[in-house]
């Protein structure tokens, strides 16, 4: 079992994740991620899709894995990694469905996802989680090891295998189509203070 329910209600997960594991993760859950995640952001995604188009394999076996959208700062001497918080997830939207088709089960980033990805999460039983955007120093403390495994020439955008321990994230989009941002923001909107045109619909 790759999902562990903790006494305080949080959940600890460790890849590889199965469909059954993913179904236990619901929008709004606070999750601690442990084990291996693969760091990849814009340029790495573009290259990975080019590899797939050329019939080549990805730099890692995607089945059940978690992709973390991060480009860390260089590590200071004596440290495993530099600052390592999440980057904006929606920039990866164009590439994401392809990776989900290949079995990626989780993604960690910040910010919202578009409708295509949210549909793909339902179709492929996968989950999108957000880490603390701009909390790069705190995130670094949860990373135990890093190894560049592909595209070293991309520098901060190289694909890395990261070993993390209890990296805190919250589930934003689950495999049933829920969106935590929408749920979380709605009660705090002060409709009476907003101009007419802003009073209907979600903030995003």
């Amino acid at each position: 079992m790759s999902v562990e329910l903790l006494p305080d209600g949080r959940k600890r997960i460790r890849a590889p994740l199965s469909d059954e594991d993913v179904r236990q993760l619901q929008a709004g859950d606070v999750v601690l991620v442990s084990g291996v995640v693969y760091a990849a952001r814009d340029a790495a995604h573009k290259r990975m899709i080019e590899l797939l188009d050329a019939g080549e394999p990805l730099p890692f076996d995607p089945a059940g894995q978690i992709v973390y959208y991060v480009g860390p700062t260089p590590e200071k001497p004596g440290h495993v990694i530099g600052s390592a918080g999440p980057t904006t997830a929606s920039r990866m939207d164009r590439y994401t469905p392809r990776l989900l088709e290949l079995g990626v089960k989780g993604m960690i980033g910040k910010g919202g996802r578009g409708p295509t990805v949210r549909e793909a999460l339902k179709r492929h039983t996968a989950v999108y989680m957000a880490a603390l955007g701009g909390g790069g120093a705190l995130a670094a403390l949860q990373i135990r090891a890093q190894r560049v495994i592909a595209f070293e020439d991309l520098g901060p955008e190289a694909v890395r295998e990261l070993e993390v321990e209890d990296l805190p994230v919250w589930v934003v989009n689950d495999c049933e189509g829920r969106d935590f941002y929408e749920q979380a923001v709605a009660p705090w909107r002060k409709e009476e203070l907003l101009p007419e045109e802003f009073r209907l619909g979600a903030p995003r």
Binding site: T73, K76, S83, T87, G135, G136, A137
Partner: peptide
Amino acid sequence: QILDLLIRNQELAAQGEYPYCQDT
């Protein structure tokens, strides 16, 4: 809770080992 985390992130970064954000 989030703002508490941001304050902790500030304090940690100020120690000089990890930049405040990885996007410098």
